[in-house]
Simulated scan of single mutants.
Amino acid sequence: MAKRANGSEKNRKEPLPGVARRLWAFSGNECAWGDPTCSTRLVTEEGAWVGKIAHIIGAEPGSARHEAWDGKDAEQLRDFDNLMLLCGVHHDLIDSSVTRHNYPVAYLRAVKQRHEARYRYTVDDIEAEFSDTVSGSQVRPATTMRRFFAWEGADQDPSDEQYVLELVNRFAGRVGGLTRMARQVLALVVHERTTDFPLVLRRFSAHRDELLSVVRELQKAQMVYLHDEVDDEDRGQLSLLSGALEGLDEMWDALRGFCRDESVDVKEILVDLDFSRLD
Protein backbone atom coordinates (compact mmCIF):
# COMPACT_ATOMS: atom_id res chain seq x y z
CA MET A 1 0.00 0.00 0.00
CA ALA A 2 1.38 3.41 -0.98
CA LYS A 3 2.75 5.56 1.85
CA ARG A 4 3.79 9.19 2.14
CA ALA A 5 7.22 10.09 3.47
CA ASN A 6 5.74 10.56 6.93
CA GLY A 7 4.29 7.04 6.88
CA SER A 8 0.61 7.94 6.36
CA GLU A 9 -1.34 6.21 3.59
CA LYS A 10 -1.83 7.87 0.22
CA ASN A 11 -5.32 8.25 -1.20
CA ARG A 12 -4.17 7.99 -4.82
CA LYS A 13 -4.33 4.34 -5.84
CA GLU A 14 -5.13 2.40 -9.00
CA PRO A 15 -8.81 2.58 -10.12
CA LEU A 16 -11.11 0.07 -8.45
CA PRO A 17 -11.42 -3.32 -10.23
CA GLY A 18 -13.45 -2.97 -13.43
CA VAL A 19 -13.43 0.84 -13.40
CA ALA A 20 -10.78 1.28 -16.11
CA ARG A 21 -12.74 -1.12 -18.33
CA ARG A 22 -15.95 0.87 -17.86
CA LEU A 23 -14.17 4.15 -18.56
CA TRP A 24 -12.81 2.70 -21.78
CA ALA A 25 -16.18 1.20 -22.80
CA PHE A 26 -17.85 4.60 -22.50
CA SER A 27 -15.00 6.64 -24.03
CA GLY A 28 -15.56 5.89 -27.71
CA ASN A 29 -11.73 5.86 -27.91
CA GLU A 30 -11.81 9.66 -27.68
CA CYS A 31 -10.76 12.24 -25.12
CA ALA A 32 -13.79 13.19 -23.01
CA TRP A 33 -13.08 16.91 -23.36
CA GLY A 34 -15.88 19.18 -24.56
CA ASP A 35 -16.46 22.82 -25.48
CA PRO A 36 -14.96 22.43 -27.99
CA THR A 37 -14.93 18.66 -28.44
CA CYS A 38 -11.51 17.01 -28.53
CA SER A 39 -11.30 14.15 -31.04
CA THR A 40 -7.88 12.92 -29.95
CA ARG A 41 -7.80 9.12 -30.03
CA LEU A 42 -6.83 7.43 -26.77
CA VAL A 43 -5.27 4.56 -28.72
CA THR A 44 -3.42 5.60 -31.87
CA GLU A 45 -3.58 3.77 -35.20
CA GLU A 46 -0.21 2.26 -34.29
CA GLY A 47 -1.74 0.82 -31.11
CA ALA A 48 -0.04 3.22 -28.68
CA TRP A 49 -2.03 4.14 -25.55
CA VAL A 50 -1.90 7.94 -25.14
CA GLY A 51 -4.93 8.42 -22.90
CA LYS A 52 -4.71 9.34 -19.23
CA ILE A 53 -7.09 8.68 -16.34
CA ALA A 54 -7.83 11.99 -14.63
CA HIS A 55 -9.30 12.62 -11.19
CA ILE A 56 -12.18 15.07 -10.96
CA ILE A 57 -11.58 15.50 -7.23
CA GLY A 58 -7.86 15.11 -6.65
CA ALA A 59 -6.88 12.26 -4.36
CA GLU A 60 -3.97 13.89 -2.56
CA PRO A 61 -3.77 17.10 -0.49
CA GLY A 62 -2.64 19.91 -2.75
CA SER A 63 -3.86 18.20 -5.90
CA ALA A 64 -6.45 19.75 -8.18
CA ARG A 65 -9.90 20.14 -6.57
CA HIS A 66 -8.93 18.01 -3.55
CA GLU A 67 -10.57 20.63 -1.31
CA ALA A 68 -13.97 19.45 -2.66
CA TRP A 69 -13.54 16.01 -1.03
CA ASP A 70 -15.65 15.47 2.07
CA GLY A 71 -12.82 13.51 3.70
CA LYS A 72 -14.93 10.41 4.28
CA ASP A 73 -14.55 7.53 1.81
CA ALA A 74 -11.18 7.56 0.04
CA GLU A 75 -12.31 4.68 -2.17
CA GLN A 76 -14.73 7.04 -3.92
CA LEU A 77 -11.76 9.00 -5.21
CA ARG A 78 -10.73 6.06 -7.41
CA ASP A 79 -14.23 4.96 -8.40
CA PHE A 80 -15.89 5.46 -11.79
CA ASP A 81 -17.80 8.66 -10.97
CA ASN A 82 -14.61 10.51 -9.99
CA LEU A 83 -12.51 9.51 -12.99
CA MET A 84 -12.49 10.45 -16.66
CA LEU A 85 -10.37 9.54 -19.69
CA LEU A 86 -8.56 12.44 -21.34
CA CYS A 87 -5.76 13.01 -23.80
CA GLY A 88 -2.44 14.10 -22.30
CA VAL A 89 -2.98 17.78 -23.10
CA HIS A 90 -6.34 18.10 -21.35
CA HIS A 91 -5.27 15.86 -18.47
CA ASP A 92 -2.38 18.23 -17.74
CA LEU A 93 -4.56 21.30 -18.33
CA ILE A 94 -7.05 20.47 -15.57
CA ASP A 95 -4.29 19.42 -13.14
CA SER A 96 -1.80 22.23 -13.70
CA SER A 97 -1.39 24.61 -10.75
CA VAL A 98 -1.64 27.45 -13.27
CA THR A 99 -4.94 26.46 -14.92
CA ARG A 100 -6.72 24.03 -12.57
CA HIS A 101 -8.87 26.79 -11.02
CA ASN A 102 -10.64 27.20 -14.39
CA TYR A 103 -12.11 23.69 -14.15
CA PRO A 104 -14.27 23.16 -11.05
CA VAL A 105 -15.77 19.81 -10.06
CA ALA A 106 -19.27 20.57 -11.38
CA TYR A 107 -17.88 21.55 -14.77
CA LEU A 108 -15.77 18.39 -15.15
CA ARG A 109 -18.64 16.15 -14.06
CA ALA A 110 -20.83 17.72 -16.74
CA VAL A 111 -18.08 17.19 -19.35
CA LYS A 112 -17.74 13.55 -18.35
CA GLN A 113 -21.49 12.90 -18.35
CA ARG A 114 -22.06 14.58 -21.70
CA HIS A 115 -19.26 12.63 -23.40
CA GLU A 116 -20.07 9.21 -21.94
CA ALA A 117 -23.78 9.55 -22.74
CA ARG A 118 -22.89 9.28 -26.43
CA TYR A 119 -21.38 5.83 -25.99
CA ARG A 120 -23.15 4.38 -22.98
CA TYR A 121 -24.60 0.90 -23.36
CA THR A 122 -26.04 0.49 -19.88
CA VAL A 123 -23.74 -0.87 -17.22
CA ASP A 124 -26.26 -3.53 -16.25
CA ASP A 125 -26.49 -4.84 -19.82
CA ILE A 126 -22.73 -4.86 -20.28
CA GLU A 127 -22.17 -6.72 -17.05
CA ALA A 128 -24.94 -9.22 -17.77
CA GLU A 129 -24.00 -9.96 -21.36
CA PHE A 130 -20.25 -9.50 -21.55
CA SER A 131 -18.54 -9.77 -18.17
CA ASP A 132 -19.87 -13.22 -17.47
CA THR A 133 -18.30 -16.12 -19.30
CA VAL A 134 -20.47 -18.50 -21.26
CA SER A 135 -19.09 -21.98 -21.96
CA GLY A 136 -15.63 -20.68 -21.10
CA SER A 137 -15.83 -17.79 -23.59
CA GLN A 138 -16.02 -14.06 -22.98
CA VAL A 139 -17.57 -11.60 -25.41
CA ARG A 140 -15.80 -8.33 -26.22
CA PRO A 141 -18.62 -5.93 -27.11
CA ALA A 142 -18.53 -3.20 -29.70
CA THR A 143 -18.32 0.24 -28.07
CA THR A 144 -18.85 2.60 -31.03
CA MET A 145 -19.00 0.57 -34.30
CA ARG A 146 -17.43 3.60 -35.93
CA ARG A 147 -15.37 1.49 -38.30
CA PHE A 148 -18.48 -0.35 -39.42
CA PHE A 149 -20.55 2.82 -39.84
CA ALA A 150 -17.71 4.45 -41.82
CA TRP A 151 -17.51 1.39 -44.08
CA GLU A 152 -21.28 1.38 -44.52
CA GLY A 153 -21.17 5.01 -45.62
CA ALA A 154 -24.66 5.72 -44.28
CA ASP A 155 -25.26 9.18 -42.87
CA GLN A 156 -27.15 8.08 -39.78
CA ASP A 157 -28.35 10.12 -36.86
CA PRO A 158 -26.33 9.41 -33.65
CA SER A 159 -29.47 8.03 -32.01
CA ASP A 160 -29.90 5.57 -34.89
CA GLU A 161 -26.27 4.48 -34.55
CA GLN A 162 -26.79 3.95 -30.82
CA TYR A 163 -29.88 1.86 -31.56
CA VAL A 164 -27.94 -0.36 -33.99
CA LEU A 165 -25.05 -0.64 -31.51
CA GLU A 166 -27.38 -1.89 -28.79
CA LEU A 167 -29.01 -4.43 -31.12
CA VAL A 168 -25.64 -5.74 -32.30
CA ASN A 169 -24.40 -6.10 -28.72
CA ARG A 170 -27.54 -7.99 -27.72
CA PHE A 171 -26.95 -10.25 -30.72
CA ALA A 172 -23.33 -10.66 -29.59
CA GLY A 173 -24.60 -11.91 -26.24
CA ARG A 174 -26.69 -14.56 -28.03
CA VAL A 175 -23.74 -15.66 -30.14
CA GLY A 176 -21.71 -15.95 -26.93
CA GLY A 177 -24.27 -18.43 -25.64
CA LEU A 178 -23.57 -20.87 -28.48
CA THR A 179 -21.09 -23.72 -28.29
CA ARG A 180 -17.79 -23.09 -30.05
CA MET A 181 -18.56 -25.55 -32.84
CA ALA A 182 -21.91 -23.85 -33.45
CA ARG A 183 -20.09 -20.52 -33.74
CA GLN A 184 -17.63 -22.06 -36.17
CA VAL A 185 -20.44 -23.38 -38.36
CA LEU A 186 -22.20 -20.01 -38.18
CA ALA A 187 -19.03 -18.21 -39.30
CA LEU A 188 -18.66 -20.60 -42.23
CA VAL A 189 -22.25 -20.09 -43.37
CA VAL A 190 -21.94 -16.31 -43.03
CA HIS A 191 -18.76 -16.38 -45.11
CA GLU A 192 -20.20 -18.69 -47.79
CA ARG A 193 -23.77 -17.32 -47.66
CA THR A 194 -25.21 -20.81 -48.35
CA THR A 195 -23.33 -24.00 -47.54
CA ASP A 196 -23.93 -27.64 -48.47
CA PHE A 197 -24.37 -29.94 -45.49
CA PRO A 198 -21.86 -32.51 -46.87
CA LEU A 199 -19.27 -29.71 -47.27
CA VAL A 200 -19.63 -28.75 -43.61
CA LEU A 201 -19.25 -32.40 -42.61
CA ARG A 202 -15.95 -32.54 -44.50
CA ARG A 203 -14.72 -29.17 -43.26
CA PHE A 204 -15.17 -30.10 -39.62
CA SER A 205 -14.52 -33.83 -39.91
CA ALA A 206 -17.64 -34.14 -37.81
CA HIS A 207 -19.93 -37.08 -37.23
CA ARG A 208 -23.29 -36.59 -38.94
CA ASP A 209 -25.30 -36.75 -35.71
CA GLU A 210 -22.92 -34.29 -34.01
CA LEU A 211 -23.33 -31.79 -36.83
CA LEU A 212 -27.11 -32.22 -36.87
CA SER A 213 -27.09 -31.42 -33.14
CA VAL A 214 -25.14 -28.22 -33.86
CA VAL A 215 -27.57 -27.31 -36.65
CA ARG A 216 -30.51 -27.76 -34.29
CA GLU A 217 -28.74 -25.46 -31.81
CA LEU A 218 -28.36 -22.80 -34.52
CA GLN A 219 -31.96 -23.23 -35.68
CA LYS A 220 -33.22 -22.79 -32.14
CA ALA A 221 -31.15 -19.60 -31.92
CA GLN A 222 -32.77 -18.46 -35.21
CA MET A 223 -29.41 -18.09 -36.95
CA VAL A 224 -29.06 -21.01 -39.40
CA TYR A 225 -31.57 -23.33 -41.03
CA LEU A 226 -31.06 -26.69 -42.78
CA HIS A 227 -33.05 -26.98 -45.98
CA ASP A 228 -33.56 -30.69 -46.67
CA GLU A 229 -33.44 -31.86 -50.26
CA VAL A 230 -36.42 -34.21 -50.59
CA ASP A 231 -36.18 -34.96 -46.86
CA ASP A 232 -32.56 -36.05 -47.23
CA GLU A 233 -30.54 -34.12 -44.66
CA ASP A 234 -27.24 -35.33 -46.10
CA ARG A 235 -27.97 -33.46 -49.34
CA GLY A 236 -29.42 -30.34 -47.73
CA GLN A 237 -28.10 -26.80 -47.52
CA LEU A 238 -27.45 -24.51 -44.58
CA SER A 239 -28.83 -21.00 -44.96
CA LEU A 240 -28.93 -17.97 -42.69
CA LEU A 241 -31.92 -16.93 -40.58
CA SER A 242 -32.37 -13.36 -39.37
CA GLY A 243 -34.59 -13.97 -36.35
CA ALA A 244 -31.75 -13.31 -33.88
CA LEU A 245 -30.93 -9.96 -35.47
CA GLU A 246 -34.06 -8.16 -34.21
CA GLY A 247 -34.88 -6.09 -37.27
CA LEU A 248 -31.36 -5.92 -38.71
CA ASP A 249 -32.28 -8.28 -41.52
CA GLU A 250 -29.46 -7.07 -43.79
CA MET A 251 -26.78 -7.46 -41.13
CA TRP A 252 -25.54 -10.85 -42.40
CA ASP A 253 -24.72 -9.38 -45.82
CA ALA A 254 -23.32 -6.24 -44.23
CA LEU A 255 -21.08 -8.26 -41.90
CA ARG A 256 -19.83 -10.36 -44.81
CA GLY A 257 -19.09 -7.26 -46.89
CA PHE A 258 -17.44 -5.44 -44.01
CA CYS A 259 -15.12 -8.36 -43.25
CA ARG A 260 -14.21 -8.73 -46.91
CA ASP A 261 -13.50 -5.04 -47.54
CA GLU A 262 -11.82 -4.32 -44.19
CA SER A 263 -9.71 -7.52 -44.19
CA VAL A 264 -11.30 -8.76 -40.98
CA ASP A 265 -11.71 -12.51 -40.49
CA VAL A 266 -15.37 -13.14 -39.68
CA LYS A 267 -14.20 -15.88 -37.31
CA GLU A 268 -12.58 -13.23 -35.10
CA ILE A 269 -16.04 -11.77 -34.53
CA LEU A 270 -18.32 -14.81 -34.45
CA VAL A 271 -15.98 -17.51 -33.12
CA ASP A 272 -13.56 -15.54 -30.95
CA LEU A 273 -16.43 -13.21 -29.92
CA ASP A 274 -14.45 -10.04 -30.57
CA PHE A 275 -17.20 -7.64 -31.65
CA SER A 276 -14.83 -4.74 -30.95
CA ARG A 277 -13.47 -5.41 -34.46
CA LEU A 278 -16.45 -3.34 -35.63
CA ASP A 279 -15.15 -0.25 -33.78
Rank of each mutant, 00 (worst) to 15 (best):
S39P: 08
V43C: 01
T44Y: 10
E46R: 10
A48F: 02
G51S: 03
I53F: 08
G58F: 07
P61A: 04
G62V: 01
A68P: 05
W69S: 09
W69L: 12
K72D: 14
D73A: 12
D73K: 04
E75K: 04
R78L: 06
R78A: 03
D79R: 10
M84E: 06
L85S: 06
G88I: 04
G88F: 01
H90G: 07
H91V: 03
D92I: 02
I94A: 04
S97P: 07
V98T: 10
T99D: 01
T99P: 02
R100P: 05
R109L: 15
R109T: 14
V111N: 10
Q113I: 12
E116G: 11
R118A: 03
Y119E: 11
Y121Q: 14
T122V: 12
I126T: 10
T133I: 10
V134P: 08
G136R: 09
Q138I: 13
T144R: 01
R146Y: 00
R146L: 00
R146D: 00
R147M: 07
R147V: 02
D155C: 00
Q156H: 10
D157W: 03
P158F: 02
S159T: 04
S159G: 03
Q162W: 09
V164F: 03
V164S: 01
E166V: 06
E166R: 01
E166M: 03
V168T: 07
R170T: 05
F171K: 05
G176A: 07
L178Q: 14
L178E: 13
